[in-house]
Design a protein around this nucleic acid. Sequence first.
DNA 1: GTCAATTCGATAAATTTTTAACGATTTTGC
DNA 2: GCAAAATCGTTAAAAATTTATCGAATTGAC
Lengths: 211, 211
Amino acid sequence: MNGTISKQALRRLPFYLEYLKKKQTEGVRNISATTVANDLKLNEVQVRKDLAAVSLTGGKPKTGYVATELIRDLESFLGYDNTKEAVIAGAGKLGQALLAYKEFERYGLDIVAAFDTDESVVDGKRVLPAEKMSDLCSRLKIHIGIICVPPECAQQVCDEMVACGILAIWNFTSVHLSVPSGVLVQYENLAASLAVLSQNLEFEIRDGHIF
Amino acid sequence: MNGTISKQALRRLPFYLEYLKKKQTEGVRNISATTVANDLKLNEVQVRKDLAAVSLTGGKPKTGYVATELIRDLESFLGYDNTKEAVIAGAGKLGQALLAYKEFERYGLDIVAAFDTDESVVDGKRVLPAEKMSDLCSRLKIHIGIICVPPECAQQVCDEMVACGILAIWNFTSVHLSVPSGVLVQYENLAASLAVLSQNLEFEIRDGHIF
DNA sequence: GTCAATTCGATAAATTTTTAACGATTTTGC
DNA sequence: GCAAAATCGTTAAAAATTTATCGAATTGAC
């Protein structure tokens, strides 16, 4: 257990966790970094380092890690055992999908409310009028805001969030957001992912693995 | 114009594009890498290199790039002008959101159909029964598959896609997919993004920029 | 018990990505 | 025209990330 971890490594942790849980349901008790690496098609040393960074007990030569312990350590490191509250701005299709996304619960994220111009109900959760966002965030001391509004309003909504105490913003729009220092913006950019995907695809097709 | 570009840089391109288009609507004709970097809070050299890698004409000292040309080059490089067809497996909330996501059109992605156990209609697009996926993908020579099914079925759906000629898979589930070499999997992992977000948030709170 | 096989953890090398430094080029103002 | 300011593109350095190497520790077979 190291405490610090690279950003890239951090992104891999949820993968390990998912994998380990699956293995556990299959009855696996011990698991080595080697096995994880082979199954997930990752470099062995990379996996070993990643796991070493989060595991409290470490692994044992020849046997590897105890699955239950490693899962616990991963969940703890990722903060899945310590629920954080968030709000969503924008209850269009994407906002609704996130609002209804059951997995967030497992990841320690509780979406307490969504806001939009039109009130409605999604999956049993109420969508409140946008004007109420500031008040609710301040009162409940919400620190995470998720932005799913149309690009034109993104910056304005962002400013509102910052004003009422939000410290981290998960931005699902494609626009850049200006925030004061001390506020985090994490971009979830479908266009960027798609770009990587199609570029690689083209590469594969052209450079001849296929055809 | 270089042709090759790093994966990280590729992910930044859609950002530049979005930004440039916004600037253009504001009447900007020429724009420098310096300005882009300042506005997007990126390193100047990085932006300059990224743009140099895609721009055919290059920029001119003192004036920078011609906005229209740079936009065109970015779109061309990203393949937005050359539409690729894709199918979606799984028309739950997320699948529906993607199916209805208008922006994909601008990114050169055309989702021609979605498949699920229950037939339905989403946003004017038909959701077809899952059994028809293989046939349709083969006939239309679809190369991109988007997976939004529950994690338990992900691998099975993936295998089906591979079997009918899909070469690139955009995986919105949290499970690892095994594919033969020559098939690409791009993971879109909300859990991973969330992990990065909350880790950074915790960091900020603890290490005292805030409180 | 000893030996071979496996895995860990650490240190070192290689690669990739980001950032800095600098000369060359073009515009603007005089 | 000429000097100053701004920007480009290139080359070099720094930082981050990935991959390789190696000795030590543990298990299981003989």
